[in-house]
Design a protein around this nucleic acid. Structure first.
Lengths: 229, 229
DNA sequence: CTTCCTCATTTTGTATGCAATCGTGGCTTC
DNA sequence: GAAGCCACGATTGCATACAAAATGAGGAAG
């Protein structure tokens, strides 16, 4: 175990990394709409980098599935295909079930308390009807569970898939019933984790994701107009 | 379903894709050893491309986890970390369990027969002690199951993880007992698939991967010397 | 003999230049 | 009037140029 460094971590990240992260954020939060073209000249001007690191970022985001490369015709933000979102959520369900299982065994009490306090925050946001705040803590909880599984590959794979789904989330308006149900489910998940109930958390997380799948899918079917290029 | 195209598919792939694939193959089959530096000048000469597409390939392979980018010091083939391999196999186990489940529902009889004939080929290779041939058909079977799950995201995620593990495979020599056991397990998996036994195939695939994990891990512990940089 | 410094060489990170490709508008032709 | 063709501008793909950083050899100081 290395000692935490008290000194200021001067970080000069490569431009292509910076560009990749910036673009990813723009895509995930919807500032760059699905289907929209990524004009190199425009983006170099906006990001203040040259075409080389920008194009490197395109390649990375393409392997992440966030953009699509059209040979000789540049890059576009990949469309949000409901079928693909459904498939992604199915995979995430399997991953979360495993993560929950592992976390039951690996998570420390302190880590569980961390999740508990995030849960409280989430409940507060739910109570006051703050959807954005709710999503934020909801995401945080799921990411913590995955993280505290202690399986780094699992965590990275999950985050990866999550980026693609989050975009859909921004356009999917939760129904009040589904929202209430999701909150209840989260309560049960937390209980199972706290009591280290491996079998139960598996089932709960798998079901939770299955419900999320149905919900997101329903919303996407209801309003697919926005994603037309 | 689109009709198969009889016309010659003129393919002019971008250089960066070609470079990515070539490099990936070299890394996966071990021609580029873990820890070895990827000298740009050398590789541009060998591949016959300029630095731009080559560096783009580096970035892609880095997101795939096959290479590691050291700022200002270039790229190296990422090390094969036994702990990481174990984590990867755990994730693959969860994915295969899901894939088997889905394939039980989605695979056509023709597709199952495809897998059956691959299984026969695998048995033949096992019988004559051809380890390389065995691995080839073994891989093919697992990939087919994942493919016939009908979940493209699952399939891609799986292939992705698989690339990282295959490298370890090349250095892990199977014991005869484990080999025999694996062949038996495959037989059971095929049976479960053919009889569409969802619950059984889940368990079988999860166990099969768990065994694979133990085996590969044991081999890596036995001979970790080769991966020293 | 070791250690540290300096400087040349190599290698990477980024920007830019050039050629090929694509899309578009206008023109011709029927 | 519609369809096809051509030429032009815009954009991409790849190569190369230039600058910053790292590596390594050699020598001076201790």
């Amino acid at each position: 175990m290395t000692a935490p460094q008290p000194v200021a971590p001067i970080l000069r990240r490569p431009l292509h990394e910076e560009a990749t992260d910036r673009l990813r954020d723009l895509i995930v939060q919807g500032s760059l709409a699905p289907g929209s073209r990524l004009n190199e000249r425009l983006l170099t001007a906006q990001l203040g980098v040259s075409r080389t690191p920008l194009r490197e970022a395109f390649k990375v985001l393409a392997t992440e599935g966030l953009v699509e490369l059209l040979p000789n015709r540049g890059a576009i933000v990949s469309a949000i295909d409901p079928a693909r979102v459904a498939e992604t959520l199915a995979v995430m369900g399997a991953l979360e079930a495993l993560a929950g299982e592992l976390a039951c065994a690996a998570a420390t009490e302190g880590q569980i308390n961390e999740i508990r306090s995030l849960h409280q925050e989430m409940l507060a946001n739910h109570a006051r009807g703050d959807l954005a705040g709710y999503f934020k803590f909801n995401q945080a909880i799921h990411l913590k569970i995955v993280k505290y599984s202690g399986n780094a590959v699992l965590a990275q794979t999950y985050r990866h898939l999550n980026a693609n789904v989050r975009r859909a989330r921004y356009m999917a308006n939760l129904s009040q019933e589904r929202w209430d149900a999701a909150v209840r489910e989260h309560g049960e998940i937390l209980e199972a984790l706290a009591s280290r109930d491996v079998a139960r958390i598996r089932v709960l997380l798998a079901e939770h994701l299955a419900h999320k799948l149905a919900s997101v899918l329903g919303e996407l079917r209801a309003a697919p107009a926005r994603e037309a290029a």
